[in-house]
Design a protein around this nucleic acid. Sequence first.
DNA 1: GGAGCAGATGCGGTTAAGTCGCATCTGTTG
DNA 2: CAACAGATGCGACTTAACCGCATCTGCTCC
Lengths: 161, 161
Amino acid sequence: MSRRTVKAPPSGDQGARDRIRAAGLRVTPQRLAVLTVLRSANGAHMSAEDVWLRLRRAGAAMDRSTVYRVLADLTEAALLEQVRLGDGVARFEIQEVAHHHAVCTRCGATTDVSIEAVRALATRLHRDTGFALGHHPLLLPGLCAACAAQLATRAPHAAGA
Amino acid sequence: MSRRTVKAPPSGDQGARDRIRAAGLRVTPQRLAVLTVLRSANGAHMSAEDVWLRLRRAGAAMDRSTVYRVLADLTEAALLEQVRLGDGVARFEIQEVAHHHAVCTRCGATTDVSIEAVRALATRLHRDTGFALGHHPLLLPGLCAACAAQLATRAPHAAGA
DNA sequence: GGAGCAGATGCGGTTAAGTCGCATCTGTTG
DNA sequence: CAACAGATGCGACTTAACCGCATCTGCTCC
């Protein structure tokens, strides 16, 4: 009863099993459960703590350090992507359609940005400095449309501060 | 003797004094000392701990929490810029010539990237999504020229993994 | 289908970055 | 130069993340 708290998700996760195994990792209920949670988040970026809480509420309680290890392992296996939104907390998301993140520094809203939008920058960077932009998600801080509009109304000329 | 460990830098920092005061902050020896350290770092990105150590070695010892508070205050006053290189540690640099940072995920080397190189991305982003890229330094993870070359030699076809 | 083992997990303690409250001190203003 | 808002020092606290180790288990080979 101490160990058997995590039950494997019913099924439909054959793809996940294969990808875990392809990475040379064992298929454990904990790893499947973490993937299920991240998949159900559907694009949201969850911290280790978020994942741990969600697992607990879903009746798949597991140790915090296991969550950290599973997230690290799956990230290294390229099943997950680690994202740092700038608050010092690492967040994770399923690596399906790669994209970048524009984060509003005022309200915290995040907007997904296509890889394609960054391609020109990557090309230029490589041409000028030899630096090869990775496939890691970029953090693009700034103001979302709503906040920018609000600030423009209140101080039309001080937008650049 | 408990308080008077921090002595104001000799002089030549009149500009700093003015900018501190212009932000509505008091000109204290601690704030001047932090600015002096950051200025002497000349482009390097220092963590709060780095700054604290450097101050200590320079005979301007002050409390850790004071360093954190001074860095936060000066950042808010736009005298400093906070940069997160992706390891969860906040770093700071004098806000003089704004630029972005390309960080090699393999060797950790950082390359400064001009604002201009990112302008096209900013324009496109604004046109497509209304998101206004801020003046915050961007973290651009990838491979520096040296590491990219090394990896290309060892595995010419597996560069995308 | 059972045994054996490399690898994974649970548990508890530990580190590191950063924050907070409060008493004391000091830069600044009148 | 007196007074006070604001800054500092001190120490305790919070939070994210990591580590060692004993125990357990998915996988492989028979």
